[in-house]
């Protein structure tokens, strides 16, 4: 069974997914950061594949992408680093990457590599649903990869239903009209949107991302969904860290405390 399915079958609330950029802050930190995220009690690891033009990301993640690229991170290097990671990491791992580097690597080779190293799912923010259905769905399925779509407050009910129909992992709810890291705190308006989607009784679990940074926002988001995704706030934590394992553990503990 895919680890993402297994997770959501067994845990229905306060699921925490942590995004980090591969090769950041240093090229060789990838596995170390993953181990620390698992040790800190998160449920899903989302590895960002750095890209030169991340249009859905705000300054913090743009910055980590640039540093990772300057460090020499690439798809090839990442797959090298990920060889054998399943000996240490047992929680679900999702790759988040923009479409162009994946296409240049070759979609089939990419899916094959993902399966080989033990990746469970993909988030490709600029892969539109129709393109996915037309060109890539069968490949993803062949290699056992769960595809995650994003929805935002602007996404129509009809489209949310279509997305729900065409995925079987989880739905990534973008919390506001925003790129990553743009806002902090959760507003009344956002809660109305969370409730609206909650009441749609979708078949897929929902994780809320963008603007989640601490125990308070995590707890609020979890009230209206199965959990949340933290990205920019985590990147800020690791950016100038002198002791990654310790700082990550402390940060995750602060988020997960009730």
């Amino acid at each position: 069974m895919n680890r993402i399915h297994y997770l959501f079958n067994n845990k229905k609330e306060r699921v925490l997914s942590i995004y980090f950029t591969a090769g950041f802050p240093h090229l060789e930190d990838t596995i170390l950061v993953m181990e620390a995220i698992q040790a800190g009690g998160a449920d899903i690891i989302e590895i960002g594949v750095p890209y030169s033009d991340p249009i859905a990301d705000g300054p913090t993640i743009q910055d980590s992408n640039k540093i990772a690229l300057d460090n020499g991170m690439s798809m090839k290097v990442l797959f090298e680093q990920l060889k054998g990671f399943r000996a240490k990491i047992h929680i679900p791992v999702v790759l988040m990457g923009y479409l162009n580097p994946i296409i240049q690597f070759g979609m089939e080779d990419f899916c094959k590599k993902c399966k080989e190293v033990g990746i469970d799912g993909l988030i490709v923010p600029d892969l539109p649903m129709q393109q996915y259905l037309d060109e890539f769905k069968s490949l993803f399925e062949e290699y056992g990869l769960v595809n995650t779509f994003l929805i935002s407050p602007q996404t129509s009910e009809k489209r949310i239903r279509e997305i729900d129909e065409n995925t079987d992992g989880f739905i990534y709810m973008v919390s506001s009209h925003a790129i990553t890291g743009a806002k902090s705190g959760i507003s009344e308006e956002q809660i109305i949107y969370f409730k609206r989607v909650q009441e749609m009784n979708l078949k897929n679990p929902r994780l809320i991302g963008f603007g989640i940074s601490d125990a308070e926002t995590f707890t609020t988001a979890s009230r209206y969904s199965h959990g949340a995704i933290i990205g920019s706030a985590f990147i800020k934590t690791v950016k100038d860290s002198k002791n990654l394992s310790e700082d990550i553990k402390n940060y995750l503990q602060s988020v997960l405390k009730n």
Partner: peptide, 12 residues
């Protein structure tokens, strides 16, 4: 061509 855009831009 095509429209390879984040879902957040889909409605626009």
């Amino acid at each position: 061509g095509g429209a390879y855009i984040p879902e957040m831009l889909h409605p626009n």
